[in-house]
Amino acid sequence: MRQILRLTVNGEAAESLVAPHQSLADFLREDLGLTGTKHGCDLGDCGACTVLVDGEPRLSCITLALECEGREVTTIEGVARDGRVHPVQEAFDRCVAAQCGYCTPGLVLSCVALLRDNPSPSEAQIRAGLSGNICRCTGYTKIMDAVREAAVELAGQAPSPAEGSRRD
């Protein structure tokens, strides 16, 4: 039987009736029309469906929508800040880190979380931070460029180093 789901999506409260067997990806794409969240395998293998749940990357294809009761979900449509695209998105654009763009939403969200937790990641840390999201087009090279550039940009923006760190 369908159940009521209350949660926050991209900063807005949402209330919806969902079937227990609906995945979060399905709920976001089909019920809310947030088709920026992609799916490449539906089994947790590729990272295309990555969204942030309470700020942490999560694979929406193997998460039940109902498991997100009361939580805050951020999709690619919600990472822009104050009407301006996020510095990570800007850097992806500038560096041509998106070829076909299918992995991009998931990767942008992973990178947003990576740079929040670690504002100046090393090469190895960037590689590790991208390792849950497969990109079949780029060889990750330009994506790594974008992460480096975004890190610099975000460091310039942050009023104090503490702001960039993890919330909890």
Partner: peptide, 12 residues
């Protein structure tokens, strides 16, 4: 999308 089979869902 690959679908889950239907089930009931409880949160004790």
């Amino acid at each position: 999308m690959m679908r889950l089979p239907a089930f009931d869902y409880r949160v004790p």
